[in-house]
Amino acid sequence: MNRGNRILLSCVYWAFVLYVFVPLLLMILMGFKDSKFIGFPIRSWTLDWYTGVFDDAAVPSAFVYSVVIAVLATMISVFVGTWIAVLLEGRKFLGRTAMFGLTVLPALVPGIISAIAFRIYARWLGIEPGMGAIVWAHAVHNVPFVALVVMARLSTLPKSQIEAARDLGADPIIAFLRITLPYLVPAILGASIFCLLLSFDDFVRSFFLGGYEPTLPVLIFAKLRSGMSPEINAIATIALVLTAAIGIWAERFTRRMSKDT
């Protein structure tokens, strides 16, 4: 194809890379600034903001709180999402389209509306705002992502393997546990990591369903509303490095696993 075109397009790509990376890099840099005032230029550098993060007990506790919520919500989403995927994939039945639509519904509802609906429903069920409510809302919200990822993997499972297992006398449950489930492991792991990150990063549902204890994004939001400070940069950088590292690791890991099997 046209060479000039190609060079132009590659410039666009790298400009886009700059657009997505530069704001985050600047934010990271600002966390090392030796001044309370957010802004450029940065004249002197310090690590004090990072050491300060651990003096404020609110930050580590919000961090642990977010992680616990993410893990619990992910466990529920993975269980339910996988079950739904097994039902929907490769099966024809009356109402399958409706079932599929209902499955992906929570992923399509705009954030604020989903948060409001969960808040009202939690109240109706008698769930108090707090950890239980957040875990439940995150779990429901993440189910569609698990279901879609697992369905995609399930559609590539050779049917002959199940048939072979059944011919050798395995009942449907054992065939599922010994053939289908091991085959789904890469998809389930990938979906789990995705759910963990979604839940850990979620703001709007945690904000409307939370009690007095803030999750990490809610804490950062509260701090931001009372003014910008390099302390927030330090907290945000720690969260950023962790989520990005987990994301990259998971991407490589699941890719290698799906290649092997």
Binding site: M27, D201, M228, N233, A244
Partner: peptide
């Protein structure tokens, strides 16, 4: 391109505030 998108909504909004 995926890497920055694993970072949460609030953190990325803050990055734009600084920008």
């Amino acid at each position: 391109l995926l890497i920055p998108f694993w970072v949460g909504e609030i953190v990325r909004t803050y990055a734009i505030m600084i920008l």
